[in-house]
Amino acid sequence: MNTEVADPTNLSEKKDFLVRSSSLKDVRSFSREVFEKFKIDEDLREELVLAIAEAAQNIVKHAYKDYPDTQDRMAVRISCTGKELEIAFFDKGKPVEESKVKHRAIDDVKPGGLGTFFIQEIMDSIKFKEGDKPWINNLVLTKKL
């Protein structure tokens, strides 16, 4: 885990993970560890962990849909200014077509299509960016504290 602590009110931690469903538990452990270090309110922590895990799951399920045995890694960076939390995801998978990122209608009860809904419910903003090399996708989630 890389820690950048130039300013105690501006914390940032980043870690990379193999793009696999088996990495999701490690993504959650990393997130919980960082939120504890950042002293994020306990009630909010697990919601944020869910949003992060759903975004990481989307990378595994969608950006690497056709490459289940990839050796690529994805990175998660959690930054906190004290007033706002920013969570950034980086991957080298299939470029995200933002117009296709939709959750299912919530009253159309069926399996699937809830991950993006959870992220939207929990976070204040969701931005898809083109990643700086070597990354292809860069998703940025923010939440006011």
Partner: peptide, 11 residues
Amino acid sequence: YMDSSGISVLI
């Protein structure tokens, strides 16, 4: 802990 995949199993 349960994420959207777990919720899908319940549905």
